[in-house]
Each structure stands twice: as C-alpha cells, then as structure tokens.
Simulated assay, not measured.
Amino acid sequence: MVTEQDAGPRTRPGPSGKRRRTRTTPASRAERRAAYPYALHLPAAAVYLVIFLVPTVTAFYFALTRWTLFDSTFVGLDNFRDFLAEQNLRIGFRNTLVYAVVTSGLKVVLGMALAVLLTGRLRLRGFLRSVVFFPVLVSTVAVGITFSMLLKPDTGLVDQALGLVGVDGPDWLSDGTTALLSVALVDVWKGVGLATVIYIAGIVSIPREYYQAVAVDGGSAWQAFRHVTLPLSRPATSSVIVLSLIGGLRSFDLIWTMTRGGPGFTSDTIASIIYKQYQAGFYGLSTAGNVLLFVVVTAVVVPLTYLLGKRQVTL
C-alpha cells in the first residue's frame, strides 16, 4: 500500500484544472524552524519588558515632573537644570570616575594574577578558588559594616596590626584624603573573585599546544604569559573591564554603608547624591539624576565595549 507520505510531493489543482506540484521553499522551512526558538524567547522578553523597559521609559517621563506618590506636575527640563546646578555634583562626578577607574584597574590586574596562580599546578587549587570567590557571595552591606569596624581608628583591627610594626594608621574613613580610596580597596577585595573566575575561564580555554610551542622554543614562563596568556585572554579582560566600570560608575551601597558620602562631601558619588535627594523628598530631581547617570554610564560603556571588541584576539 502506498501511503500519502510515500506519494512524493503533493499536488493541487491549477487554474486550468490540472494538478501542479507545490514545493516547500528553503525560506519557509527556515521560518518554521525559527518559530520554535522565538516562542521560547517570549517569557524572557515579557519579563525584560515589565522589569526593565517599562520602568526605564517611566523614569524618563517622571524626570520631567515634580511628583509624589499621588500626583505629578510637568516641569519640563527644570529638574535636569537643578540637578546639574548642585554644588557638590562636580565632586561627586570626579569621585565616581576615580572610584570606577581605580576599582576596575585593580580588579583587572589582581584578577589576572590570581587566575594565573590558580590555574597552575597548586595543591588545594579548588579550595583556594573557593576562598577567592567567597567575598562575592557576601552581602555588600555586611561587608561595609564589617570593614567599618575593622578600619576604626585606634580600636580597629587594621590600626592595631599596623601599631605592632610601629606604624600609626590614619583615620581611614573620617579623613577626606583616604575615605574614598579605603572604600575602593574594600570594593576590590569583594569583587576581585568574580574577575578571577572570568579570567580562569578564559585561561583554561586556551589550547595547551600554544604553551607547548613556547616550551619547545625554550621560552620562559614570563614569555608564555606575555605572548600566549595575555593576548588570548583579551575577551576575559574586556568582560572584567566593562563589568567593573559599570559597577564603579553606579557605586552606592558600599560607599553609603561605610562613609555616607563623608566626611563632608569628599567621598560622595553621583549615586549617593541622588539618594540624598530622595531622602530630602525631591523625587523628580533625583529621578532626573538617575536618568543622567544612566546616560553617563551608557556613553562610557557602549563605545568602550565596541573598542574592546575590535581588539580581541580569536583562536
């Protein structure tokens, strides 16, 4: 018996009454195959729409209003002008850039160094990787409170340890010259584990044949790092730089927990200035600050991502 599946291409009557063959084009087959993955994207797209796109568009609208929980008044660009006229905004902007550059730079250097060490032939290598990554899992607020106690003058563990070797430690968080740098170093301690994991993933994906070729040519470990590990880890470096810069430019929770922007305004960042406006009840003004911060982060990260992507080395 010949079934319909065995009968070959289907036919259908043409305008003259004769049956003509119809063929499935490659484009239609591709559309049917693509419909299934697109359907799987719908739940994630709905969540992204509700959680990110709608609040973002709403924030742009409320940045143009003076609003409370129950009403709003359209004021145009007044909120942006008032926010840009903040007397300590220049300090906050400078601190934000310094904080972002210092933290991202140290995370790149230390993350690479730790990754090279932890991909070598070490005993307890897995345990040491867990130890390095552990601070990433700890709450930022808990880290800030803990280090605030450790960095207290005279009674803090850090100053006591320095006193044992005859060094008089400064007032880390109450001195305007050391407050921001102290918080930045704590941020590096907490976040370097993630950078290390990213670098480890990049290093272990490099084929061993490259290192064997360097060894055959009589190259040293430094030459292997310089000519193999460093250039072929550029994708990992790009990821660490971008993620660290985004986190540094948006820095708030650790700074607020440890210094609250003080002493005075010496460790204020853009995010802490925005939060102070929220505390004072200027919701439209602070929303305009959030929009400006979003624009600044986008203006820095998008071109940087493009430039780093062009310089990546592919295997």
Rank of each mutant, 00 (worst) to 15 (best):
residue 163 G to W: 03
residue 312 Q to R: 11
residue 215 A to E: 10
residue 11 T to F: 00
residue 69 L to R: 05
residue 103 T to Y: 03
residue 119 T to Q: 05
residue 113 A to K: 02
residue 237 T to V: 07
residue 25 T to H: 01
residue 38 Y to E: 12
residue 61 Y to L: 04
residue 143 V to T: 01
residue 231 P to R: 06
residue 116 V to D: 06
residue 92 G to E: 15
residue 254 L to M: 12
residue 289 G to M: 11
residue 303 P to F: 05
residue 202 G to W: 12
residue 187 D to M: 00
residue 92 G to C: 10
residue 126 G to R: 12
residue 33 R to Y: 08
residue 294 F to N: 14
residue 209 E to V: 09
residue 33 R to A: 09
residue 77 L to N: 03
residue 223 Q to L: 11
residue 236 A to E: 01
residue 311 R to P: 00
residue 174 S to I: 00
residue 291 V to Y: 03
residue 197 V to D: 00
residue 21 R to I: 05
residue 142 A to C: 10
residue 150 L to V: 06
residue 61 Y to G: 09
residue 295 V to R: 15
residue 261 G to Y: 13
residue 150 L to T: 02
residue 313 V to C: 05
residue 163 G to S: 09
residue 304 L to F: 10
residue 195 A to Y: 15
residue 144 G to W: 13
residue 253 D to F: 11
residue 225 F to N: 01
residue 305 T to M: 14
residue 171 D to I: 02
residue 146 T to P: 02
residue 4 E to W: 09
residue 76 G to F: 10
residue 295 V to D: 13
residue 286 S to F: 00
residue 81 R to E: 09
residue 300 V to K: 03
residue 34 A to T: 11
residue 277 Q to S: 12
residue 50 V to H: 00
residue 245 L to A: 03
residue 136 V to G: 00
residue 38 Y to H: 08
residue 69 L to Y: 03
residue 230 L to Y: 13
residue 194 L to H: 00
residue 174 S to T: 14
residue 206 I to N: 04
residue 97 L to Q: 14
residue 288 A to C: 08
residue 9 P to S: 11
residue 284 G to D: 06
residue 303 P to I: 02
residue 236 A to W: 06
residue 192 V to F: 06
residue 279 Q to L: 10
residue 219 G to T: 08
residue 154 D to W: 07
residue 124 L to E: 01
residue 296 V to Q: 04
residue 129 R to F: 01
residue 17 G to K: 03
residue 246 I to P: 06
residue 154 D to P: 06
residue 105 G to I: 04
residue 312 Q to A: 11
residue 184 A to D: 05
residue 103 T to H: 04
residue 289 G to K: 13
residue 155 T to I: 15
residue 93 F to N: 07
residue 146 T to R: 12
residue 46 A to Y: 12
residue 156 G to N: 08
residue 155 T to C: 04
residue 149 M to I: 12
residue 240 V to G: 01
residue 286 S to W: 02
residue 75 V to M: 08
residue 157 L to R: 05
residue 165 V to P: 09
